[in-house]
Amino acid sequence: MDELTGTILAGESFEALSGRVVVEDGRITAVEEQQTDSTDIVLPAFVNAHTHLGDSVAKDAAVGLSLEEAVVPPDSLKHRRLAAADRDELVTAMRRTLRYMSQTGTVSCLDFREFGVEGARALREAGEGTGAEPFIFGSGPPSVLDVADGYGASGANDDDFSAERAAAEERNMPFAIHAGEPNATDIHPALDLAPDLLIHMVHAEQEHLDRVAEQSVPIAACPRTNSVLEVGRPPIRELLDHTTVALGTDNVMLNPPSMFREMAYTEREFDVTPREVLRMATTAGAEIAGLDCGVIEPGRRAALIVLDGDSHNLAGTDNPIESVVRRATGRDVKRVVS
C-alpha cells in the first residue's frame, strides 16, 4: 500500500481537499479528507493528446520554416530527416523524449507515428520501460493496425483515407485525422470520415463547430505549435463550448513536450479557466484514448503527479489549481506515480 498526502485535486471538478490518496496494486482505493502537515499537491498525471515523437531526431531543426516546409509530407524537412535516421537513432531519440515526458508528469501520449508498420514497431520499442506509454496512431496501409492502437491520417486533402477508416471501424479501433490547420478546406471532408478525433481545428467556423457537436467528435488542440508555425490561433473557447477538447504539444522538433508549458500558454492566451485547462491536460486526453486515469477517485488507475508545494516556486500559493496551471514546472515534480 502507498499513501500520498497533501492537497488533493480530487474528482472531475478537481476539488482541492486536504487529505490522502491510498494506492494499492496500481489502483486508487481511497481518497480521504483529513488534516495533514504535507505541503505536497497531488493531481492526475497528464495525457498529452497529440505528439509526433519521431521528430525527436530533429529538435529545433524546423524553427522559422513554414508549415509546408517544416512538416507537410512527403518532402518537408521533417520527413527528410526521418527518412535519413537509422532505426537505432530513431528509437533512442524517441525513448529519451518519452523519459523526459515521464519525468515531467506525462503517463501517456497520443502519437501520430509515421512510416507504417515499422514506424509503429519502433515507437512501441521506444516506449518500453519509460513510464510514458505511447498510444500509437499508425500511418500507411491499413495493416499498420496490426501493431498500432489506432489510425492517424495526415489530412483529408492529402489522400483518400476511406479504406483506412473502414479498416479501423472493422477492428473497433479509433481513427484520428488532422483538420483545419493551414485553412478550413479539409474540415468537412475530415468530418465526412466520421473520425473519433480531430487534430488542430485552428480555422474551424460555426458550420464546422455545429457538425463537431452533432457528431460528438473530440478535438486535440496544440496552440503552441500553431503559434510557432504561424498558422493561426485555435478558437479554444468555441471548441470547448461544442465538444471535448484535450491539449497536445505536437511536433517535438518545434516544442518540448511539456504539458506545464502548454497549460500555462493556453491559460494565458485564451478565454479559458485554469480548471478547464487542467481538464484538457488530464481527463480529456485520457477519455479520448480510453485510459482509466485522468481523475483522482477510488477505482481509477493510480496515475498521479506529486508536486512539491514547498518548492521555491510554489511555496505560499493561495490557489493550487491556478498554481498548477500557471506556475508549476517540471522542476516542481517530486514524484510521478504510474
Rank of each mutant, 00 (worst) to 15 (best):
R233E: 08
E205C: 07
P235Y: 15
E207R: 15
P257A: 06
E262G: 01
V228R: 12
A221N: 02
F260V: 11
E262L: 04
N255V: 15
T244P: 03
V252Q: 02
E230T: 11
Q215R: 15
T244R: 11
H242C: 05
D196Y: 15
R261W: 04
R211S: 07
R233H: 10
H200S: 08
A221W: 07
C222N: 03
P223L: 05
R261Y: 08
S216D: 15
L240W: 13
H200K: 08
A213Y: 06
E214S: 12
P218G: 08
D192C: 13
Q206R: 15
R211N: 07
P256F: 03
D210P: 00
I219C: 04
Q215I: 10
V202K: 13
A246L: 15
D192K: 10
E262I: 03
A246H: 14
L229Q: 01
H208R: 05
E205I: 09
R224C: 02
T244I: 15
E205M: 11
D241A: 13
L247H: 04
P223A: 04
E262P: 04
E238V: 12
L193T: 11
H203K: 11
P234L: 05
P195F: 15
L239I: 12
S227F: 15
P234N: 03
Q206N: 12
L198Y: 13
D241N: 12
V245G: 00
D250L: 04
D241P: 11
N251E: 09
N251D: 13
V212T: 08
H208Q: 02
L254R: 08
I219F: 01
M263N: 02
V252E: 06
T225M: 08
T244N: 01
R237W: 14
L239K: 05
R211T: 13
V231R: 01
I219D: 03
R211M: 14
E207K: 14
E238C: 12
P257T: 09
E238N: 12
P234Q: 02
E205L: 15
D196T: 09
G232Q: 04
H200C: 09
T249D: 00
R237M: 09
T243L: 03
E262S: 01
G248P: 05
S258A: 10
G232M: 09
P223R: 06
V202P: 08
A204S: 05
P235D: 00
S227T: 14
E262D: 03
E238F: 15
T243W: 06
L197I: 13
L240Q: 10
T243Y: 07
P234I: 03
Q215N: 07
L193E: 01
V202I: 14
E207D: 12
I199P: 02
A246T: 15
S258N: 08
L197S: 06
A246K: 11
S216T: 08
V231S: 03
L240D: 07
V217Y: 03
Q215T: 11
R261I: 09
A194F: 09
A246D: 00
I236H: 02
D241H: 04
M201K: 00
F260S: 00
L229P: 11
S258V: 13
C222L: 09
V228H: 04
T243S: 12
D210G: 02
